[in-house]
Design a protein around this nucleic acid. Structure first.
Length: 295
DNA sequence: CCACGCTCCTGCGCGC
DNA sequence: TGCGCGCAGGAGCGTG
């Protein structure tokens, strides 16, 4: 059984995974009263707030929301903020299910427990006072890419005069939230835009195509994850992240699925970046180091 | 304000 | 077969 649980995740929790997680736990969490709070480690990215138990026990969870990659539980006088980092997962178990090595945080709700597992401990558990949106972590966040108020015009406006390559640009949560390293490369491929293109060099049409590509890429991932909703209840193989077929991510030195050219790997802002040099010609690629393909 | 790079942590893959 | 090094990644934060 444990062997199944250790199968490696296919991808980090990006926005679609977080939203699927939210939907998966919501029916088991919303409306429930918090009976107990358990921490098994000093903390994750931040130390666990010392007042977690006293503030949360007895509160009723009235909503399970998401902002960017943060999951927010409205719990009476407080808002519990959860972040999955890069290896975190939230699952529902029968209460009294023995905790595993990386199970760092439990919220006991009736006969069930909401459990945060995070091997690499990049995740976060914080206690906020409403309105949570005013908290420093949330107040400066950018657009929700799937919302109607994000579109090509917005992307065009925010990128004027910016010399940052478009790939790290769309990954900056202060502009657009939830576009992680994987979907950044995938979205740019879908838009046929080279990741090194200076953001300010994109024209209106580029921006419209890219905004649409981001939405479509995230929505496709959401759809792929939708079928795994039932997995959020215990027993599950913690199947976790949805296995998807990527166009370019992680495919360096393999043929482009569209044109057959060899997919390249570059390092951009310290992050692995994948692109097809033939399909993605959009712009000024001078100065891009022909990075040795990793591994 | 902007651009960039460091950092946290741990599992895993690779090279020897 | 075993060991150890280095990478991967979200996002805050420090620096120039």
């Amino acid at each position: 059984m444990l062997a199944v649980l250790t199968s490696k995740p296919a991808a980090m929790p990006e926005l679609p995974e977080v939203e699927i997680t939210r939907r998966g736990i919501e029916p088991h969490v919303s409306g429930q009263r918090i009976g107990e709070v358990v921490t098994r480690h000093l903390g994750l990215r931040y130390p666990f707030p010392p007042q977690l138990r006293e503030c949360l026990i007895g509160q009723r969870v009235t909503a399970v929301r998401r902002r960017a990659k943060y999951i927010l539980l409205d719990a009476g006088d407080y808002v519990l903020l959860l972040h999955l980092g890069m290896s975190g997962s939230l699952r529902i178990f029968p209460r009294d299910t023995p905790a595993g090595k990386h199970d760092h945080f439990d919220l006991v709700l009736g006969e069930k427990v909401l459990r945060l597992r995070d091997p690499r401990r990049f995740g976060a558990v914080l206690l906020l006072e409403p309105p949570a949106e005013q908290h420093a972590l949330l107040a400066t966040l950018g657009c929700e890419p799937l919302a109607d108020d994000f579109d090509g015009e917005v992307l065009y406006a925010m990128s004027r005069g910016r010399r940052t390559p478009i790939k790290p640009f769309i990954m900056d949560a202060h502009r657009i939230v939830g576009v992680g390293n994987i979907y950044a490369s995938e979205s740019l491929f879908r838009a046929r835009i080279h990741p090194a293109t200076p953001a300010g060099q994109l024209n209106r049409k580029h921006c419209r195509v890219l905004a649409d590509a981001i939405k479509q890429t995230l929505q496709d991932a959401l759809a792929a994850g939708g079928s795994s909703l039932k997995d959020f209840v215990h027993s599950d193989g913690a199947s976790g992240y949805f296995q998807q077929q990527y166009a370019v991510y992680g495919r360096d030195n393999q043929p482009c699925r569209v044109c057959g050219a060899t997919v390249e790997r570059h390092v951009m802002a310290q992050r692995a970046t994948f692109c097809c040099p033939v399909c993605q010609k959009t712009a000024n690629t001078r100065g891009i180091s022909r990075a040795k393909s990793g591994t």
